[in-house]
Structure formats: structure tokens, C-alpha cells
Computed example of a mutant assay.
Amino acid sequence: MSESIAPLVLFDLDGTLLDSARDLHAAMQMLLAEKGEPAVDFTVFRPVVSKGARAMLKCSFANADEQQREALLPEFLAHYERALAAHSRLFDGVAEVLANIETQPSRWGIVTNKPYYLAEPLVEKLGWSQRTAILLGGDSLPRKKPDPDQLLHACAVLGVMPERVVYVGDDERDVQAANAAGMRSIAALWGYRPDDDDPLLWRADELAETPLELITRGLLRSR
């Protein structure tokens, strides 16, 4: 099992390694209150977190049009930046998975659509700055997931062929990017997902119900 881990395992961040929904929800609640809008229920908000900030705004400001929501984006991110690790926690089993990878001749890194200026201090607060082989944000390159550019760039920087890399993420865009890059793709079913989003349709190489399954089922092998 663990001895077959690929030389490089890349992960999405929010909804895959980190349960950050509470902090994002708190930031949104502050923004809604400032604008005189009713609060958004956490159970409604949580499933769209991995779809990105614009999806969170659309969920929360349902009566606003796209231009109005776009104008709110900087304020939402500013609220989040001020308290981006107050309630965020690793998903159960993530710490064990990362530790297991580090016992092997293998490395792990993070490729997220979260802006780098938010991802970098968050990774530092988690104590991962010296552990992760690479960190790429959604603004690190001109294009982000579902385009494969970030994943291919990580491979180029770290000197690993894409077919020897595994990418784990909880959104369809993660699977699309990994497949386009020629990597092994794993859909993280423990993350954030709307009820009408069927991961069986994503065409991932594997589905994992929990982080620990990545190890116990030997899913982190390369193609």
C-alpha cells in the first residue's frame, strides 16, 4: 500500500485538506450584515465552498445580479483575510496521510484556486510552509483549474512527469484538471459538494470516502 505511493501527490486545499467553511461563512455573514441582508444558513452555504468565492456570493446574495456580486468580491475576501484560520481545521485523517507520504520517497504539494495571498499565510499557520513541496494559488498563473496549467507547472518545477503524479480534490474542476494533465485523479468525497453534483460523472480514476482511504486502499499510486 504505502510503498506504492507516487513520487508526487498534489492536493486541493479547501474541502480536501482543510475544512475552511466556518471561516468563509463567518466572513460572508459579516458582509451580509453590513449590507443589510439576511444571514445565509451554514447548511446552504457549505456545499458551494469548493466552487469558489463567486459561487459563495451567488448563494448568499441570491437577489443580486452578477455585476453587483462582483463588486462585493473584494470586501468578502478582505473579511476572510482578517480571520482566515479562526475555525478552519484539517479533515480527520489528513494529518496521517501527509505524515505517511513523508515516510516514503515521495513529496506532496498544494494546488488550489484560492488566491495565493490567502493560501500562503493559511499554509504557514498550518505549519506546512516547510513541508509542502510546492504551493500554487488560483492567481499564480494566467489560467487555473479546470485548466491543467497549474498542475503541469508544479510538475515542471519539481521535475516529475505528470503520469507519475496523483491529484486529489473535492470538486469536478479538480478532476478535469488532473485528467487534462495526464495525472491520476482522485475525487475526495468528504469535501464540499451540492446535492445535485454527482461525482460518479466526473470521470475520476478513483473515489475516496475518507482521507485515510487514500492510504488504506493504496490509492496514491501513480498511473
Results as ranks from 00 to 15, higher is better:
169 G>E: 12
145 K>F: 08
124 E>A: 08
153 H>I: 01
112 T>R: 09
140 S>E: 12
118 L>C: 05
114 K>P: 04
175 V>M: 11
138 G>F: 05
113 N>Y: 06
145 K>N: 09
151 L>C: 08
137 G>N: 13
106 S>H: 12
169 G>Y: 06
160 V>G: 04
124 E>G: 02
117 Y>D: 11
130 Q>V: 01
125 K>I: 07
151 L>T: 13
105 P>M: 10
170 D>R: 09
142 P>Y: 10
128 W>R: 03
136 L>W: 00
171 D>W: 02
124 E>H: 00
138 G>M: 11
148 P>Q: 03
139 D>S: 08
149 D>H: 07
117 Y>K: 15
153 H>M: 01
122 L>I: 10
124 E>S: 05
120 E>A: 15
106 S>I: 13
152 L>T: 08
157 V>E: 07
154 A>R: 12
137 G>T: 13
121 P>E: 09
146 P>D: 14
124 E>F: 00
170 D>A: 04
147 D>Q: 12
135 L>F: 00
134 I>R: 09
148 P>R: 14
142 P>L: 03
160 V>D: 08
114 K>S: 09
123 V>F: 01
104 Q>I: 08
140 S>K: 10
118 L>H: 09
112 T>V: 00
136 L>N: 13
158 L>T: 09
148 P>K: 04
173 R>P: 04
153 H>A: 14
150 Q>D: 11
106 S>F: 11
128 W>E: 01
141 L>K: 07
110 I>H: 02
118 L>F: 02
160 V>N: 07
149 D>M: 07
119 A>M: 00
156 A>Y: 10
169 G>F: 06
174 D>V: 10
162 P>L: 00
132 T>H: 06
144 K>Y: 01
112 T>W: 05
141 L>Y: 02
146 P>H: 04
158 L>G: 00
109 G>M: 03
175 V>Q: 10
159 G>M: 09
150 Q>H: 15
127 G>W: 02
138 G>D: 06
149 D>V: 06
161 M>N: 13
105 P>C: 12
168 V>K: 03
119 A>W: 01
109 G>D: 04
130 Q>L: 11
161 M>A: 14
165 V>H: 00
141 L>S: 09
166 V>F: 08
130 Q>I: 02
171 D>C: 07
160 V>S: 10
155 C>M: 06
141 L>E: 02
146 P>W: 12
114 K>L: 04
